[in-house]
C-alpha cells in the first residue's frame, strides 16, 4: 500500500531519532545533576551541532525526495495533525541548536565542540538576551519532547491499530521493497 520513504530519508530519520532522543535526555539530565553536569554538557554541545547540520541536510533531502503520500482513507484531521507535527519537528530540530548556540554566545560562554573546534559567537554578550534565550531553550525542548511523544504514539497507532503501512514506510529495512497493505 504505502510506498516506503527513500532510503536516505529513512537513514536520516532513524539516525536523528536516536540523536534527538539522546539529546533530550542529556539536556534534562545535565540540569538535574551537579555530578553529571559537565560530562553531559560536553556531549550536549557537539551533538547539538551535529543535529543542526543533519537537520539542514534532512530539510534539503525532504524537498528533493518528498515523502510518500499518506493513505487516502485517513481522515482530514489526522492528515493535518501528521503534516503539522512533522513541520513542528523540523522547526524545533533546527531552532533548538540555534537557540542553544545563540544563548551561549550571549552568556557569554565559548562554544567549544571538542578540543580546539570552537564555533564563533552569533550574538553579542547580553545578560537579558541570555536569560530570554535560556528560557526559550527549555520551553522549546519540552515542546520537542512532547511533540516526539505524540509522533511516537501516532506512529505506533499506524503500526498496531490502523495497520495501514505508514509505520512500515519509515520502518522498512534496506532498499525499496514492495509492500502490500
Amino acid at each position: 500500500m504505502a510506498r516506503p520513504f527513500p532510503l536516505l530519508s529513512r537513514l536520516l530519520h532513524w539516525l536523528m531519532a536516536a540523536m534527538i532522543l539522546a539529546m533530550l535526555f542529556i539536556g534534562i539530565g545535565m540540569v538535574g545533576s551537579l555530578t553529571d553536569y559537565h560530562w553531559l554538557v560536553s556531549i550536549h554541545k557537539p551533538l547539538g551541532a551535529a543535529i543542526l547540520v543533519l537537520a539542514a541536510i534532512r530539510l534539503v533531502n525532504r524537498l528533493l525526495n518528498p515523502p510518500p503520500p499518506l493513505p487516502g482513507g485517513m481522515p482530514g484531521w489526522q492528515r493535518l495533525a501528521a503534516h503539522a507535527s512533522h513541520w513542528v519537528l523540523y522547526a524545533l530540530m533546527i531552532a533548538l541548536p540555534l537557540v542553544g548556540w545563540a544563548m551561549l554566545s550571549a552568556a557569554p560562554y565559548p562554544v567549544i565542540l571538542y578540543g580546539t573546534i570552537e564555533l564563533p559567537p552569533i550574538l553579542a554578550p547580553s545578560p537579558e538576551t541570555f536569560a530570554t534565550l535560556r528560557l526559550l531553550h527549555s520551553v522549546l525542548a519540552f515542546a520537542l519532547f512532547a511533540t516526539f511523544l505524540l509522533h511516537l504514539a501516532a506512529a505506533l497507532m499506524h503500526a498496531l491499530v490502523y495497520r495501514d503501512g505508514v509505520f512500515e514506510s519509515m520502518a522498512a529495512p534496506g532498499r525499496l521493497r514492495n509492500r502490500t497493505g
Binding site: 545535565m30 540540569v31 545533576s33 559537565h38 554538557v41 552568556a107 541570555f130 536569560a131 535560556r134
Partner: peptide, 13 residues
C-alpha cells in the same frame, strides 16, 4: 560549573 551556570541563569533574568 553547574551551579555557576544556574546562578548566571537566575541573575541574568
Amino acid at each position: 560549573s553547574g551551579a555557576y551556570s544556574e546562578s548566571l541563569r537566575r541573575r541574568d533574568g
